[in-house]
Amino acid sequence: MKIIVLLKRVPDTEARILINQEGTGIREDDIKFVINPYDEYAIEEGLRLKEKVGGDSKVTVVCIGSEESAELIRTALAMGADDAVHVCDPALKKPGPFTSGAILAKVLQDEGFDIVFCGKQAIDDDMAQVQAITAEILDIPQVNVAVVFEISDDHSSAVLNRRIEGGDERVETKLPVIISCEKGLNEPRYASLPGIMKAKKKEIRKKTLADLGFDSAPGGGRSEILKWFPLPKGGECKMVEAEEIKDAAAELVKLLREEAKVL
């Protein structure tokens, strides 16, 4: 079985995000980048499926990203993935979802696949569109926000639970399929130390747009990010204190009227 996992490099969830001066992106100096946390569930599910199905099953990681993404691809290989495709091209500075979708669809077609796992969204721009666009271009089913995944005995279909508001929805799908993964699907493994050593010998196939047959970034131009700006700072919290509750209430009304000017 040919299993593909999509991976994106994103700022660490604990990193403090600052917008750059031009408002065109975030300041990348001195912050740590990690594998998109939802993609870790995708990697783990891909590895579990491979272990379950056995035979000549293979997990291939596919990533669009800068040179720096290579280290995170290597981490996925250290977790146990077999090889990787790294789409890296200077013309791909910040690919929008249509660009990423078009590129991924091409890579998936070239590689061949039975099933694709990815995160339900990237935690940087939170668009959650790439898997849908890719699935549409390839004209295959997609199941999003999966928390349970079970493959059928003959490996031709799968049953999944999707997390929806207030509960789960049980879905059956044919393969090939794209599945986006939600927290709770599994507990991702660590990249073990022997895994890290083995990963050094695994192949990362680097591809430019030209290698994939594109003259320029495909599928873009449907929307454009104009500017990034931080949220306005929250106001100071003022505590009203008084011996009697009615005095506190009177003080609060006074403050709301005179200082906050909302009454």
């Binding site: 290579a70 280290e71 290597r74 981490t75 250290a78 660590y190 990249a191 073990s192 130390l193 890290i196 050593m197 990963a199 050094k200």
Partner: peptide, 9 residues
């Protein structure tokens, strides 16, 4: 890269 990965795990 290898040292960073070991540190990270």
């Amino acid at each position: 890269e290898e040292e960073r990965m070991i540190q990270s795990t």
